[in-house]
Design a protein around this nucleic acid. Structure first.
Lengths: 195, 195
DNA sequence: CGAAAATTTGACATGACTCAACTGGAGTGG
DNA sequence: CCACTCCAGTTGAGTCATGTCAAATTTTCG
C-alpha cells in the first residue's frame, strides 16, 4: 500500500532501491473509520500522514462561536498533517477528522527526522511539496480577498471536482468562508441561469 | 551585506566556513528605488530575492476591475519571490514593487539549483522557510474566513507592527480584503471606543 | 419506515461596498 | 516661504452581498 507514496516521491526526486526499502519500512498504515479523529485541537500531531484513500477535513474551531472553519480537505495523494504541530511537537490549533473510511500512511516525528538524515534527498522532496501547497494557498488568498462568493464556488468546483463529490455542501461553504444557506442560494441561482 | 542572510540560515542549519564562502559568492546585491518593479505580471521571476532593508509589496491585478490585491509585504529578513514563477521559470501571476528604497540579495535560478547541489543541507533550510510561511498563511486563511474585518485588522496590527509603520493604510486594507474607506471607519470607531 | 442530518427557501438584518465630497499633509515650483 | 497640487485618509448617504433565524423539504441511513 505504500506504492502511491513512493510514486509521488519519485515524481519529484530519484531514489535507489535501497533507499526505497529504507523509506518503505519507516511508514505504518493507519485506518480511520468515518468520523474518527486523527488529532484534535490541543493535541500534538504526532505523525505526518499521507492519504492513500478516503477523505479527511482539517478545521479550526472558533473559540467564541464554536463553529468549525475548514482549513483544507485531503483525499488520496495529499498530506493530512498540521505542519507546525508536527515539526515542533507542540499543541495543534486544528482538528483533523475522517469524512469517510480512510487509509493513511504515517511516520512519527523521530522516525521522520531519522529518515531525513538517512536520505537527505528527501529534504528536497518535502520542500517541493510545501512549495506546491504554497502556490495553491496563495491563489486561495487572492480568490478570497478579491472575488465574490459565487466566483469562489465556481473556481472550487473547477479545481477540486473530486472533493465536491465527497464532501457535504455545508463543509464546502465553510471552506469558502460563507454560510451553507448562502451557498445553497448561489447554487439555486446558477441552476436557473443555466437554461 | 550578506550577513543577515547568513545569520538567518544559521538559525536553522549549520554551515562550514567553506560553505559560507561558496554561499556568499552566489548572491548579488540589487537596489530598488521607491516604486521600482522587481518583476510584473507575465514576467518571469528570475531571481530569488531576500530583503536586506526597505519594503516591497507583492500583488495580483484583478483582470476585470484592474484593482491591486495585496498578496504580501516583505521587509528585512523576508523573502520577496514568486515561488512558482521562480521554480518553473514561468510567467508570474503577481507583481512585486518597492514601497521605499530597498536593498535585496538575489540569486538566479541556475545558480540556486547549483548551490543546492553543492550544499544539499540548504534544501532543509528552504524547506523550513516554506514551512514557516505556510503556518502564517494558514492562520491568515482562517482569520479571513471566520473573523470580521475589525478582528482581522486588530490581529494584523498585533502581528506586524513594523509593517503598519511603513505601509499606507489603503494597502493594508487590500491585504485584509476590505476597502480603504471601510478600514478608515473601523479605525475611527476603535479610537472612540478607547476612552 | 422513521429519525436525524443536510439542504432549500423566505423574511429580515447588517457588515461591507460604492460613490462623492471634504480634509489635511507632503511635495514642488515660483 | 507661500500657493498649488496631489494623494491618502475621512466621512456620510445609499446600496448590495452576505448573514441570521426559522420553517419546510429532501436525503441519508439505521
Amino acid at each position: 500500500m505504500i506504492a502511491p507514496l513512493i510514486k509521488n516521491i519519485q515524481s519529484k526526486i530519484q531514489l535507489t532501491e535501497e533507499e526505497i526499502k529504507l523509506f518503505a519500512d519507516s511508514w505504518k498504515e493507519k485506518k480511520l473509520d468515518k468520523n474518527d479523529l486523527l488529532f484534535k485541537t490541543g493535541d500534538i500531531c504526532r505523525y505526518d500522514s499521507f492519504v492513500i484513500s478516503g477523505c479527511v477535513k482539517a478545521f479550526y474551531i472558533h473559540p467564541t462561536t464554536g463553529k468549525e472553519e475548514i482549513l483544507f480537505f485531503a483525499i488520496e495523494d495529499w498530506w493530512a498533517t498540521d505542519l507546525d504541530s508536527f515539526s515542533n511537537q507542540s499543541p495543534s490549533d486544528y482538528t483533523i477528522q475522517a469524512l469517510e473510511d480512510t487509509l493513511l500512511l504515517q511516520i512519527s516525528h523521530d522516525a521522520f527526522e531519522k529518515l531525513l538524515k538517512a536520505i537527505p534527498k528527501l529534504e528536497r522532496y518535502f520542500r517541493l511539496i510545501l512549495h506546491g501547497y504554497i502556490s495553491a494557498i496563495q491563489k486561495r488568498i487572492i480568490l478570497t480577498n478579491a472575488h465574490s462568493a459565487e466566483e469562489r464556488y465556481i473556481e472550487f468546483v473547477k479545481r477540486y471536482p473530486k472533493i465536491i463529490q465527497k464532501v457535504p455542501q455545508y463543509l464546502i461553504a465553510s471552506y469558502l468562508g460563507i454560510t451553507p444557506e448562502f451557498l445553497s442560494k448561489i447554487r439555486a441561482k446558477r441552476s436557473l441561469g443555466n437554461y
